[in-house]
Design a binder for these strands. Structure first.
Lengths: 384, 384
DNA sequence: CTACTTTGGCAACAGCGTTGCTTAAGTGCA
DNA sequence: TGCACTTAAGCAACGCTGTTGCCAAAGTAG
C-alpha cells in the first residue's frame, strides 16, 4: 500500500471514529489526539499541497509558502522536495525578480491523483471524476430508480464508479484514485455511513451504504448527505468563510459550512431546514408541525406564486444568516433551477443589509463534484 | 517571560490573527499553519493537561494517557516528566493493580496557575478567580453603570481585576495568572476586541476594550460576548457536543457551541437569536422586522403570560436544535431566572422527541466563569 | 564590471516521539 | 515460601522532523 492510499484509508478510518497517526493531514480533525512526527509531517505536506492547490497553475514560490505556513524556507524546501519526489508537485518556471534571484515557482500536479464523486438522487445517478485541482475530467449521467432498493441501486452505482476508475486522464492513462465520495438523500449517519429513514423510501433505512460500496470497490468510500456535498462544492476554495446551501426539491434541506468546514452536528442531523417554523400556528405540515418553511414555500410553488415562495425562502434564509453570521447563501434544487431569477431576487431582497450574498448553484453535477470533494478535502488536510 | 506567560500571550496573539508556533496548544486553532517541533510539543502538553483536567483529583495513569492520546507510553512518560517539572502535574498515589505493577496516578495541580473572569453587565460587575480545574476560588460583585461610559467602567473593571490578581489561593499565596477573560454585552468583534453598537449604549461603539484593558493590566486579555461566555461556562467539560445558551434579559441572545467550540461566525456576529422571525408578518419589532422571537416572547412576558413566552421561546429553540443538531439547550437571564420552572417546562415541551434536553443555567456568576474559561481553554489546547 | 539582494541547497544540529531493553512492583498458583 | 507471569515505567540509542549557519547561484542596479 503506497503512502497516498494509506493516507486516505487512514483518514477515512478517522472519519469513522478510529485510527490516527502517520497520515497526511493527521494533525487537525475531529479526534483530539496526540501528534507524533509522522502526523506532523503529514500535516505540513497537506498544508503545502493545499496552498499550491489554491494558487492554481501559475504556482507559488518557496518563500511565499514559507511565509504562509510560518515554517522556515529551508523546511519548505525539504517538504517540497519530498512532494516532488512523489510526483505531486512540479516546478512551474520562474517568477519576476524583486531585486534578487527570481523565485522558482512550484505548482500542484493535478493529474497525479484523482477522486470520484457520485450523486445518488431519487431518479438519477451522476458520477464525476475530478483531478486534484477539483476539475471535472469526465462525467456520466443515467436514470436511476432510488425506490428500486439497495440491490439494484448498488449495482448501478458500483458499475458507474468502476467505469470512472478506468477513464484515462487527459493525455496520459488513469491516475491513482484517492477514493470515492457518495452523496445520497438524507438523513444518514455520516460517521458510520448508514442510511436513516429517507422520506418515501423505507426500504433503505439502516442500510450500510458506505461499507457495502467500500467492500465492492476496494477503495475508501465517504458517504454524506446531498446537501452537505452541495455546500462543499458551492464554495470549495474558501478557507474560513461560512456558507449555506439551500436545496429546494421534493423537500427543503440545507447544508452548512462553518469556519470553512461542513458542519454535521452531534448526530449527523444538522441542516434540518425544511421544518424550521416560520409561522407560529400556521398551516399544518406533513411533518406534523405547523407553519414550517417547507409547507409555506412549497404550497406557494404549488399555487404558482413563485414570488411568495421566494419571499418565504428568503425570510428563512435571513434567519439562518443572522443566527450563523454567514457569508453566502447558495440556492439549488429543481424548484429553484426552474425559476432561478425569481428565487435569487427574492432571497437577496430578504438578505439586504445583512452582509451575505445570494447566488444560485451550478445546476446538474454540482452535488457530485461536492461528493468528490469529500475525498479531496482530507487529502489537503481538511478535517475528515 | 516564562513558558506559560509566553503560551497565553502567543495564544492571544493567535486569537488576534497573528503569531504562531512554539505555544502550548499551537497545533489546532483557526490559523491554518505549519507545525514545527515546539508547536507539536505544545499541542501534546496541552492535550495531556486537558485529559488530566477531565479526570479530576483522582488522576489518570500513564498508560491510560497513552491510550487516549495515541502516543506511546514512553512519550507520555517524557511529557508528564516535563509537566511535573513545571509544577503543573503531580503524582496522586497508585491505582488498583490489573494483574501487574499498579499504575502511578497523575493529576493536574489546579493551584499551579489561575485565571480571572469578569462579566460586565448593564448594571453589575462580577469578577471571579478560578484555578486550573475551573473551580471558583474567589468572587466579587458590585453595582456598575454600563451607561456611565468607558472611562468609569474601565476604572471599575481594572480595580476589581487587580484585586483578584492579589487574592491568595487556598492555603498558599496567589498563583501566576494566565490571563483575564472579559464578557461584555454584544455586538463586538472578538478578534480585535472592539465593541460594536450595543443597543442603548452608543458611547461604547468602536471602543477597543480588549486593548485598553490589556494595556492597563499588563496581562493577556480575551474579550467575548456575554452569551458566548455563557455557553462556554454551561458546558465547560464536554469535548465534542453541541449546546446552545439562550439568554432572556433586556433582549434575547444566543451563544452557540458546536463541535465543542464556541462558534462566532465570520464577523463575530453569530448568535443573533432575538430577531429570528417566528411569525411571518407578525407584530412589528423594535428592530424594524416583524414577528421576531424577541417581540413575541417579551410581549408575552409584559402581559404576564409566561406560559406563552415559554412556548414561543421553545419553538424558536426547537428550530435551532433541528437546524444545528444540538444536544443541550441552556436557559439563562433574569426573565428566565424569575420563573425557571415555567420556561424549562415550556422549552422542554417544544423539544420533546428531538433528542435535546433543556436545563437552566446556574444564575449569577456563570457568565463570569465562562469568561475565565476563555483564558483556560487555549491553555488546554482548545482553539483560541 | 562591481556591489547588493534574493533564492535555495548542503551540512551540522537540537529536539520530538519511537524502539529495544532493563528494572520495579505487583498477582496467582503450587 | 518460592517461582512464573504480568504490568508499569525509566534509560539509552535511534530515526526523523524542522532549524540554524553557511555558501553558491542568479538575478538587479549603478
Amino acid at each position: 500500500m503506497d503512502t497516498v492510499s494509506k493516507a486516505i484509508t487512514a483518514n477515512t478510518a478517522t472519519a469513522n471514529g478510529g485510527v490516527r497517526g502517520g497520515v497526511r493531514g493527521g494533525v487537525r480533525g475531529g479526534v483530539r489526539g496526540g501528534v507524533n512526527l509522522p502526523a506532523l509531517r503529514g500535516h505540513n505536506d497537506a498544508l503545502v499541497l493545499h496552498l499550491l492547490r489554491g494558487a492554481g497553475p501559475s504556482g507559488l514560490g518557496r518563500s511565499e509558502l514559507a511565509e504562509r505556513t510560518g515554517l522556515t524556507p529551508q523546511a519548505v524546501s525539504k517538504i517540497t522536495a519530498r512532494l516532488r519526489g512523489e510526483g505531486l508537485v512540479a516546478e512551474a518556471g520562474r517568477g519576476a525578480s524583486t531585486g534578487g534571484k527570481p523565485r522558482t515557482l512550484l505548482r500542484l500536479v493535478p493529474e497525479a491523483r484523482c477522486a470520484v464523486g457520485a450523486h445518488i438522487d431519487r431518479d438519477e445517478l451522476r458520477v464525476v471524476r475530478v483531478d486534484l485541482a477539483g476539475r471535472v475530467t469526465a462525467d456520466w449521467r443515467e436514470p436511476l430508480d432510488f425506490g428500486a432498493g439497495p440491490g439494484v441501486v448498488l449495482d448501478a452505482v458500483a458499475d458507474a464508479v468502476v467505469r470512472a476508475f478506468a477513464h484515462p486522464e487527459s493525455g496520459a492513462g488513469p491516475s491513482p484514485v484517492l477514493g470515492v465520495g457518495i452523496a445520497a438523500p438524507g438523513p444518514l449517519d455520516w460517521r458510520t455511513g448508514v442510511l436513516g429513514r429517507v422520506t418515501g423510501f423505507p426500504e433503505w433505512e439502516g442500510f450500510p451504504l458506505r461499507e457495502e460500496l467500500a467492500g465492492r470497490l476496494g477503495v475508501a468510500v465517504v458517504l454524506d448527505k446531498d446537501t452537505n456535498a452541495g455546500v462543499g462544492a458551492a464554495d470549495g476554495g474558501g478557507d474560513f468563510g461560512a456558507s449555506v446551501y439551500l436545496h429546494v426539491g421534493t423537500g427543503l434541506g440545507a447544508g452548512l459550512r462553518l469556519n470553512g468546514e461542513v458542519y454535521r452536528g452531534v448526530r449527523s442531523a444538522a441542516g434540518e431546514f425544511g421544518h424550521q417554523v416560520l409561522m407560529l400556528d400556521g398551516p399544518v405540515c406533513r411533518c406534523g408541525g405547523r407553519g414550517c418553511v417547507e409547507v409555506l414555500c412549497l404550497d406557494a410553488v404549488a399555487r404558482g406564486d413563485l414570488a411568495e415562495a421566494a419571499r418565504v425562502l428568503g425570510e428563512a434564509a435571513a434567519n439562518l444568516v443572522a443566527l450563523l453570521d454567514v457569508d453566502r447563501v447558495v440556492l439549488g434544487g429543481r424548484v429553484v433551477e426552474a425559476a432561478a431569477g425569481v428565487f435569487v431576487e427574492g432571497v437577496a431582497g430578504a438578505l439586504a443589509g445583512r452582509g451575505a450574498v445570494a447566488t444560485v448553484a451550478l445546476a446538474g453535477r454540482g452535488v457530485a463534484e461536492g461528493a468528490a470533494e469529500l475525498v479531496l478535502g482530507p487529502f489537503f488536510g481538511r478535517p475528515a
